Amino acid sequence: MLSYQHGFHAGNFADVHKHLILTLLLQSLNRKSKPWSYLETHGGRARYELSSVQALKTGEFRDGIARLWQQPVPAAVQGYLEQVAAVNGDALSVYPGSPLLAARLGREADNIHVMELHPAEAEALKAVFRQDARVAVHHRDGYEGVLALLPPKPNRGVVLIDPSFEVKDEYRQLVRFIEKAYQRWSNGCFAIWYPLLPAGHWLQMKQALAASGIRNILCSELEVSPAGEERGMYGSGMLLINPPWQLDQTLAEVSPWLVEQLQVSAGSGTGRVEWLVPE
């Protein structure tokens, strides 16, 4: 599908959840001097103007990143907020997408490959990284493109899978991709984002991954309101295959704070961090 554009949703509660975890993953990789690879299946445009027509039409960032902007945060959240602040002045006007977060956290020897199929989004993505030799932007199908590059060099790092899920088959397609990708790069960390929607297709995706034979899968889910047909996405999920040591503890500690900050109303949200499949 080429209709989805993330500009309508940039900086919302799901982005905060997803990008906080991504920042923690990349910070963990940076604790060692060895270079890493970052690959992303659905990159978007990397840099989102919150004054754009798209962002203002939905205003979703107001219930996401704007709630955390220039507020006291736990130590585990500080690195993520520092990256958001680095692309802004005194006022919150820009939201960095995952490719930009990866590039900012990347070092000189690190290697970044970002896929984007939407022509306009791919062109905007290329413009952001035109002067950055570390970042390769690929205008191609994300699943096919990432598989073609596995195993990557350097042979440690992260794959972020973040599709729009506009089509029901996307969940099955994602599982098939993970099974193939894991065969090629079993030591890689795979970060899978998914929306919590009333239809519940994400539950079948989790069940399929749990039955795939792949082990060491951590699950972090954030609900900002109870599930209900009248509301679309009520939560955000992340599955992490081969997460770094102690990330489960860090997420368990920060999850209650994140719920408190992002829930629609007091007592309406919940969070959970649990092992879908232990090591």
Rank of each mutant, 00 (worst) to 15 (best):
A85V: 02
R184D: 02
L68W: 04
Y143M: 04
H113E: 00
D162Y: 10
M1W: 06
A127R: 15
F190W: 07
A55L: 03
V259D: 05
D132G: 08
L125M: 12
V264F: 10
A252K: 15
T41R: 05
V273A: 12
V277L: 10
V128F: 12
F165H: 08
Q78H: 15
G64F: 01
H42T: 09
G11R: 08
L149A: 06
R215I: 03
R231A: 13
L196H: 03
Y4W: 03
V73M: 08
C219S: 15
L262F: 03
L101N: 09
G232V: 04
K168R: 15
V264C: 06
G43W: 11
L26K: 13
G7E: 00
R140K: 11
P154D: 00
R47C: 14
I65V: 15
Q207V: 05
C189G: 02
A86R: 15
T270M: 09
E82Q: 15
S37T: 03
A46K: 09
I192D: 12
Y80N: 08
Q27C: 13
H6C: 05
N155D: 08
E121K: 09
E221D: 02
M238D: 04
N30R: 10
N111H: 14
Y143W: 12
Y4N: 02
L2W: 09
G44D: 04
H201S: 00
E274I: 06
G232L: 03
V224E: 03
